[in-house]
Every structure is written in C-alpha cells, then in structure tokens.
Nucleic acid binder design. Structure first.
Lengths: 152, 152
DNA sequence: CACTAATTCGTGTACATACATATAAAAAGG
DNA sequence: CCTTTTTATATGTATGTACACGAATTAGTG
C-alpha cells in the first residue's frame, strides 16, 4: 500500500519528510505483522527480541545491561520484560557472584523451544511477504544508515 | 551509526532480515530525535501527530474516526490522546449534532501556536540532521513501499 | 584506606499500544 | 415500525516506552 493511502494524506513538504513518515509507517507495519505471528506463542515483539538476544549467547549468561545494549529500542525497560519471561519460565534470573550489582539471565530450554517455533512463523514475513531482492535490501540498508549518519 | 554497532550484533540471516531490523531501528531513532524536540513543548510524538492532522483540516472539525485513519500507528487510542490534548486546551471536543455517535474535534488557536513552534524545531531534524538528497529519499520511498507491497 | 563518584538494577509514574468489551446511536431488513 | 446489525466512541487491562530516582555495589581518587 502506498503511504498516501495508508495515512490518507498526500501533502508532504518534500521527499525527505515523506521518507520519514514512510519509515515510521513501515516499522509499524512490520511490528504489527510480527506481533500477529507471535501471539500464537503468547509472546510480545519485545519478549521475542530478548529471547533472541539470549539465544545468541547461549549457553552463556548475560547481565541485564548487555541485553539492553542489544535491544532495537534503546529505552526498553529490560528488567520488566525479563519479569514476564521469568513468570513464563522462559528465562532464569540469578544474582551474579562476580559483581553483586548484576543480575544474570539465561534462556531455559522451554525458552529455546518456543523461540525456535516462533522464529519459523516470523521468518515467513521476511521470506515470502517481503519480496525485495537482496540487492534492493542492501540499497535500503545503505540509505537508512545514511539517514542516521549525523548521530542526533 | 551502523546497525551492527547500534544493536551490537553482526549475525543477520541475510540482507532482507537486516533491512527489517534497520527499519525498526531507524524508526526508533527518528521517533526519539523528534520526541526530544517536542519535550520542550510538553508534547508527545503522538499528540503532535494528532495536532498536525487537525491543522490539515482546519478550520474544519474532524471526528475521532477520521483522525484515527490518518495516524501512522493504526492502533493508536485516539480518544485518550485527545483527552490529554483537551486538558491542555490545545483541542476542543464537542458532540456532533449530525450524528450523535460522533465526537468532533477542532484544534484551538493555542494548539495552532504550539504546533507551529514545535514544527520549526522538528523540521531541523529533516532539514539539517538527515542529509540524504531528494533523489535518495525518493529511492527510499520506493523501496519501503515495495516491502509493504504484499499487504500482511 | 576512606571517601566520592560511577555503575547496575529495580521501581514508580505518565503516556502510549494492542486488543477486548461496553454503550449509544444509526442503518438495514423484514 | 420494530428488530437486528453495524458503526462511533469510550473504557478496561496487560504490556511497553521514556525517564526519574533510589539502593546496593564497585571503581576511582586523594
């Protein structure tokens, strides 16, 4: 769907302003499509993200700070997301012995199982819904990083 | 900043997966930069969006449904955003006489004033922080719309 | 070593999202 | 008309974001 239809507006100051809105809308679209798949597993987008991060280091443990540094949305409140994953027994939280300020977290085998099943469903979006070529995706990556070139 | 640094990961399944994360991260980056500017005016990103939508129709009124259809994030809870704008006297809410189910909303002159000041600050992001050409922005728009081609 | 500063994590609050449900009014169908 | 269905809005709940603050611990400095 064209942006103009999606937000019922065609008055953009210029292509750059339009690109800004297009990025925000596409992110929402992507997040919504993903969340719909994750719902069957009782996971939210952010809980899924934390599980993926933990699996990337498995069987190593990670402290809360390390997880936070890998989150896409940097202001995510990681302790609370872990609270919910812990209730569902998808992660285990223990105090660190090396640095008593730290809490270390590990993904459980139940967490790994649910993550693998969920990932199969989520990947459908990338493998069959999104139909750009690798080359186009690469061009997109370059443009997005150029937008963020001037940090802040 | 490169995505790899931003989320401290360089393991992407392919360029398309990476593009997905890049879109999500760029949207977060853009939203954060905007919110920082809006904070001086006591506005959130979403409140700003609603004010912009209302100004686009001014001096006409809009019902809640029309506003919702123009929001970028389609699940925004528009009645509650309007609650907060109403408390700050930036919009006026009245029952519709034509259709008693509807609530119609107008931006006040205070709302227009704050919106104009805020827009000047927000546009700095687009005019001087984001340094892509119009042609590049146009290419970006094409790619993003191609990604969303298969609706859902 | 003692004191200050910085770090790590948890928690509280305001606002927003996602979604289910409720309420009132309008539209549709017999 | 009267009943049923649909529509417009509001509200309730769980989760998440953004940010401030506090407690505990570690690091840094005189």
């Amino acid at each position: 769907m064209k942006l103009e239809q999606a937000i019922q507006s065609s008055k953009f100051k210029n292509e750059i302003h339009k690109a800004g809105l297009n990025i925000l809308y596409t992110a929402w679209w992507l997040k919504t499509a993903t969340s719909r798949k994750l719902k069957d597993f009782g996971l939210t987008h952010e809980q899924y993200n934390v599980l993926r991060i933990l699996k990337g280091k498995y069987p190593e443990q990670m402290c809360v700070r390390d997880i936070a540094g890998r989150m896409i949305e940097k202001n995510s409140n990681v302790p609370r997301i872990i609270d919910r994953l812990e209730i569902k027994k998808l992660v285990k939280r223990t105090d660190s012995s090396e640095d008593k300020r730290e809490t270390v977290v590990t993904i459980t085998s139940a967490g790994i199982n649910i993550l693998e099943s969920a990932t199969k469903k989520v990947d459908i979006i990338f493998d069959s819904v999104i139909t750009v070529s690798n080359k186009e995706a690469s061009a997109l990556n370059t443009l997005l990083e150029k937008i963020r070139a001037q940090e802040k």
